[in-house]
């Protein structure tokens, strides 16, 4: 098992290397000269040359790559072109809201979607099942920002029961923090919930057909015990997979959701950086998000071992 763990860890290295190469290429394929952007509107050619030298942009490409990789490994992601602050600091400042939002959304989504899927499978073919399925298809089809504005319009402006925008750190109290996260989490979580509910239903349906469920029922066990203890446990593998893989979906959604709800997280940083062509920041964000994604996949794989003792490596 430890050997497997090591093998899995080693396997992430080439993946991250490809990501790093892409990210490096990003700066060098970008139109326009980063040195000229940094120098500003009125800079003389000598100024630009000086900046280029300072940034090491005049060195041969492979040398730049080596230097850059070494910097990244040491945690130095460069300096923002616009605010002149270290990229790692910018990302650090923005990490908390994004992580809180994502975590909150995951909890929301799992707590709502898994029961939905279980009930739909249990009552397969009834109106409950059908409405869950309609919800699941709709969840995939509604654009996140459209939904966000719908929520703002309804809950924050018409009913005035939830705040419109912004982020309150959990350090300033759990309730204020949660209040601000309800709408963004619902918005962000819709696709995710659809995915989980659908997978839970499919997986449960399959398990419910199995013989041992029938046996359990025959033994006279209470239906909910069978449902939760026997069925859900055995159906959990694909559900956990989809929860893990779906995180990528959340990362994409975060970028849009944070824009709608003015949450000062990594998503907003991304959009700002893209709009201003702040390449060092774009590079840093892609690296971080990809690393998170790879890490989560690793965790999902490990969960497999815990959840399904039959799998031995």
């Amino acid at each position: 098992m430890i050997a497997y763990l090591l093998r899995r860890l080693l396997a992430t290295i080439p993946v991250m290397l490809v990501v790093a190469l892409f990210v490096f290429a990003l700066l060098h394929l970008s139109p326009g000269d980063p040195a000229a952007v940094i120098a500003g509107d009125y800079a003389s050619p000598e100024d630009i040359e000086r900046i280029r030298h300072k940034l090491g942009l005049d060195a041969p490409l492979h040398q730049q790559l080596a230097i850059w990789l070494w910097q990244v490994v040491r945690g130095d992601l460069g300096t923002s072109i616009f605010s002149n602050l270290p990229v790692s600091k910018l990302i650090g400042q923005r990490l908390e809201p994004t992580l809180t939002l994502t975590a909150c959304t995951m909890i929301f989504a799992v707590l709502l979607a898994v029961p939905m899927g279980v009930v739909a499978a249990w009552k397969a073919g009834t109106w409950i099942d059908r409405s869950v399925m309609v919800f699941a298809v709709l969840g995939f089809s509604l654009p996140v920002f459209w939904l966000g504005f719908l929520f703002i319009f309804g809950f924050a402006l018409k009913l005035q029961i939830l705040p419109v925008q912004g982020y309150v750190s959990i350090r300033e109290g759990l309730w204020p923090c949660l209040r601000h996260l309800v709408l963004p989490s619902l918005t962000l979580g819709m696709v995710y919930m659809a995915l989980i509910a659908r997978m839970t239903r499919a997986s449960m349906l399959e398990v419910l057909r199995e013989d041992y469920i029938r046996t359990a029922h025959a033994k006279g066990l209470k239906p909910h015990v069978v449902l939760l203890w026997h069925a859900l446990k055995n159906a959990s593998l694909p559900i956990v997979t989809v929860i893990g893989v779906g995180v990528a979906l959340l990362i994409g959604g975060v970028v849009v959701t944070e824009s709608v709800f003015a949450i000062p997280g990594l998503g907003r940083l991304t959009v700002d950086a893209i709009l201003h062509r702040d390449y060092p920041v774009i590079q840093g964000i892609i690296l971080i998000f990809s690393a998170i994604y790879v890490l989560i996949n690793l965790l999902v794989d490990l969960m497999y071992m815990v959840l399904d003792p039959r799998i031995r490596y």
Binding site: I152, V260, A262
Partner: peptide, 18 residues
């Protein structure tokens, strides 16, 4: 200074007293 790029959100924040 709280920068809110989306005017609809910004307007709503002002009306809501934030």
């Amino acid at each position: 200074w709280l920068y809110i790029p989306d005017p609809a959100t910004a307007q709503a924040a002002l009306v809501a007293g934030e």
